[in-house]
Design a binder for these strands. Structure first.
Length: 429
RNA sequence: GGAGAGGUGGCAGAGUGGUCGAAUGCGGCGGUCUCGAAAACCGUUGUCGGUUUGCGCCGACCCAGGGUUCGAAUCCCUGUCUCUCCGCCA
């Protein structure tokens, strides 16, 4: 959410930044609403002050036993009261309208973010590793002989429908190994705090990390009003909601491995084969809470944490900066990591690392202060480190052999009881 | 699910109808003392909104939302969260 004062002080800068995301004319609407709101607040507070004064006099009259005066003032208070109530109602409505409007406006891109209408405007900033030369036509993950016995879409469809999978045997063991490996690396080498969170949350949390109010159709809600998190960015970030932290507590760098749930509304027909795009998947997430000054450096740091995972797994990847037209709603700047998938002959997104500046901090009312200083909203960052299912795909496709077996990355071996490959039969050996 | 207790400032914790934005302690900030520090002592210290060039003034906030009252942290109702006991249970 944006600071109304900043918009008021410099509407043209606000407008110009939003224009880079393809939005125009919003500042006029905001400022009109804001001045109406402020006028109403002034009127309502003036009326309240008069009511309070009369009420105080009434109390004094009563105390000295002047019943006539007391009764006169009591009538006056009653009169003022209805006037106050009406105006306060209007002021509250306008205040709410403004807030509701502000909640639907995306974050402003940083100056350094490239302009562009959609993903075609993204800019590659790093490329690591080189795709292997196959002396056979590499298959997609679900086509590999050694993978097939452990990746069962038919049974999943019976249980739950499309976009679900049942994983078995060697495949799920590698999946589990990947998650453990990611967590251990983040904890031991990157200094992140391992955290475990609920996956069902209250509405407020979904507002805090901007899934709501605009993207309700992308997530699932239970019959009693909880939301299933689409990412543990929601829970990790909201751990500080409403808090006033001491600056010395920052940065807070967390990681969590959770299930994630997404309706994938609007992506019908996209990535329908294999387990690239599922309603339920696992992700190891990274979230940092820090001061606004530190956010950009933390963004680089977090990007490096995600890249380190792919490098240790020896998966070729590239890092891109998303352009203004492709960035998420809450982001000021986003790096996407795309892993090489030989089966698709493409780089595909496996991680997205964003800094949100104070955008979410303001929504959550999460603040920090230096001793003796004024409270300020915290900055927040989030990034996948990594999507476990997609990482599994990358490991399987990159490690596949002509005979249908899969060689597994060395860093996973000790998580697999010393086993190094999935045989063409589907057995770990 | 049943019964009970409770949610007060950064933290702990008083306050059961006006003089309470709220005692006290801790913490923070400033000072005295000291070569310096500690201790001790003195002073100071909530947040948000509106308004003002500024000093300041006004309004709101004691979990949230309603209500009673001239007046609510305090009384009533609803919700919510926490704790204790019982039941059930991975």
């Amino acid at each position: 959410m944006h600071d109304i004062r900043a918009i008021r002080e410099n509407p043209s800068a606000f407008e110009a930044a939003l224009a880079r995301r393809g939005l125009t004319g919003i500042s006029t609407e905001i400022l009109t609403l804001d001045s109406a709101r402020r006028a109403k607040i002034l009127a309502s507070e003036t009326a309240t002050a008069a009511q309070n004064a009369a009420s105080k006099e009434a109390g004094a009259a009563k105390a000295r036993g002047d019943d006539a005066e007391f009764n006169r003032l009591r009538g006056l208070v009653a009169e003022k009261k209805s006037e106050t109530a009406a105006m306060t109602l209007e002021a509250d409505q306008l205040d709410r309208q403004l807030r509701d409007l502000l909640l639907t406006i995306p974050n402003l891109p940083l100056d350094e973010v490239p302009d562009g209408p959609d993903e075609s405007g993204n800019v590659e900033i790093r490329r690591w590793g080189s795709p292997r030369n196959f002396d056979f036509i590499p298959r997609e993950h679900f086509e590999i002989a050694g993978v097939k016995p452990g990746m069962d879409f038919e049974t999943a469809a019976k249980l739950s429908g499309a976009r679900f999978v049942v994983l078995k045997g060697a495949v799920i063991r590698v999946h589990r190994a990947l998650a453990q490996f990611m967590l251990d690396t983040h904890i031991e080498e990157h200094g992140l705090l391992e955290t475990w969170t609920p996956v069902l949350v209250k509405e407020d949390a979904m507002y805090g990390t901007n899934q709501l109010p605009k993207f309700a159709e992308d997530s699932y809600q239970t019959t009693n009003g909880w939301w299933l998190i689409p990412t543990s960015e929601v829970t990790l970030t909201n751990t500080v909601a409403g808090d006033l932290l001491d600056e010395s507590a920052l940065p807070i760098r967390m990681t969590a491995h959770t299930q994630c749930f997404r309706s994938e509304a609007g992506s019908a027909g996209k990535d329908t084969s294999g387990m690239l795009r599922q309603h339920q998947f696992e992700k190891v997430e990274m979230v940092t809470i820090c001061t606004p000054d530190a956010a950009l450096a933390e963004h680089e740091r977090m990007t490096n944490c995600a890249q380190a995972i792919l490098e240790k797994l020896e998966i070729p990847y590239r890092t891109i900066v998303l352009c203004t037209g492709d960035m998420g709603f809450g982001s000021q700047k986003t790096h996407d990591l795309e892993a090489w998938l030989p089966g698709q002959n493409k780089y595909r997104e496996i991680s997205s690392v964003s800094t949100c500046g104070q955008f979410q901090g303001r929504r959550m009312n999460a603040r920090f202060k230096v001793p003796g200083g004024k409270p300020e909203f915290v900055a927040t960052l989030n990034g996948s480190g990594l999507a476990v299912g997609r990482c599994l795909i990358a490991v399987l496709e990159n490690g596949q052999q002509a005979d249908g077996s899969v060689e597994l990355p060395a860093v996973l071996h000790h998580y697999l009881g010393g086993k190094t490959k999935i045989a063409a039969s589907g057995v770990l050996e």
